[in-house]
Amino acid sequence: MNIFFKELWSYRELLIELIKRDLRVKYRKSVLGYLWSLLNPLLMMMVVSTVFSYMFRFDIVNFPMYLLTGQTLFNFFSEATNMAMSSITNSGSLIKKVYLPKQVFPVSRMLSSFVTFLFSLLAIVIIMIITRVKVTWTILLVPLPLIYILIFTIGVGLVLSIMSTYFRDVIYLWGVFITAWMYFTPIFYPISQLPEFASNLMRFNPMFQMLQCFREIVLYGTFPSWHRHVACIVCATVSLTIGIYVFRKKQGNLILHL
C-alpha cells in the first residue's frame, strides 16, 4: 500500500494535470460551464421532489433536503466509478509508449469527479438556506463523510478499472448493478418503508451508512453514532485495501488487454 501511494506522490504533478484536463474537457464548449455542477442537482431535485410529492407521500420532514443529500452523494459514487472503468483503456496509447504508474489514470478520474462533487455541494447550501435548516456545530464534521465516501469510491473504482480492462462486459454489468444499488439505498424514500428483513440488510449497505452519516450531520444537526462512524471507516478501509491489492496484482498484464 505504501508503494502505491509513493508512486502517486512521485507523479503528483501529472495527477494534477490530468485532473485539470478532465475538468476542462467535461465543460468544454458549455456556456454555463461549472455552473452545471450546481444546476444539475438542483434541477433533478425539483423534478423528483415534484413527482414524489404528488405520486408518493412519504412522511419525510424537508423532503427536498432529504432527497438532495442522498442524490448528490450517490451521483458522485456512480459518476466516479463509471469514469474509473474507462480510464485505463482510454489512456492505452500513452501507457504503451512510456512508463507511468497506472493507478494515476483511474485515481485522477475519480478525483476530478470529486472536485465536481464539491461544487455541487453549493446546491445543498442553497436549499439549506431556502428551507431554513437549523445549522448546528455538527456542520464542522461534514468533511468526515466526504472523506469516507471518497476512500470507498477509490477502492471500488480501482477494482472496476482493472476488471473492465480485462473484461469489457463489466462496464454494462456495472450499469445494471449500480442502478439496483441506487434503489436499494434510501435516497428518495425513508427506511421505514422497507419490510423488516430489508431494513436489517440495509446496515450492510456501505452507501446507506455514509449517506446517513452525511444526513445526520447536515440535515438533522446531530452527531452520528460511533457505530455509524466505525461502519463507514471499516467500509472505506476494506474497499481501499482490496482495490489496491487487486490493482497491484493485475496491473502487470494490463498492456496485453489494451
Rank of each mutant, 00 (worst) to 15 (best):
S37L: 02
L38W: 08
L39W: 06
P41M: 04
P41Q: 09
L42T: 04
L43E: 06
M44D: 02
M44C: 15
M44I: 12
M45N: 08
M45T: 09
M45F: 10
V47L: 13
V48L: 03
T50M: 15
V51H: 08
V51A: 10
Y54E: 12
M55L: 09
F56T: 10
F56R: 12
R57V: 02
R57C: 01
R57E: 02
F58L: 05
D59C: 06
D59Q: 15
V61D: 07
N62M: 08
Y66K: 00
Y66P: 10
Y66C: 10
L67E: 12
T69I: 02
T69V: 07
T69P: 11
T69G: 14
G70I: 05
Q71K: 09
Q71A: 13
F74S: 09
F77Q: 07
F77D: 00
S78F: 05
S78W: 07
S78K: 11
E79L: 04
A80G: 03
A80N: 01
A84Q: 12
S86T: 12
S87M: 07
S87P: 12
I88E: 07
I88M: 15
S91N: 11
K96H: 14
Y99L: 06
Y99C: 15
Y99K: 09
L100W: 11
P101V: 08
F105S: 07
V107M: 10
V107R: 14
S108T: 11
S108W: 12
R109T: 08
M110S: 14
L111H: 13
S112I: 05
S113D: 09
S113C: 06
S113L: 08
T116G: 09
F117V: 00
F117W: 08
S120W: 06
S120T: 07
I127P: 00
M128E: 06
M128C: 06
I129R: 04
I130Q: 11
I130R: 13
T131G: 01
K134D: 08
V135R: 07
W137A: 09
I139W: 05
L141G: 10
P143N: 11
P143S: 03
L144K: 03
Y148Q: 13
Y148T: 14
I149V: 13
I151W: 01
T153A: 02
T153L: 00
I154S: 04
G155V: 03
V156R: 01
V159G: 06
V159Y: 07
V159T: 02
L160C: 03
S161E: 15
I162Y: 00
F167W: 07
F167E: 02
R168L: 07
R168D: 10
R168K: 04
D169Q: 13
D169Y: 10
D169R: 10
D169V: 15
D169W: 10
V170Q: 01
I171R: 06
I171K: 08
Y172C: 00
W174M: 00
W174P: 00
G175S: 10
G175F: 01
V176I: 15
F177K: 05
F177V: 05
F177I: 11
F177T: 12
I178E: 01
A180Q: 09
M182L: 07
Y183F: 14
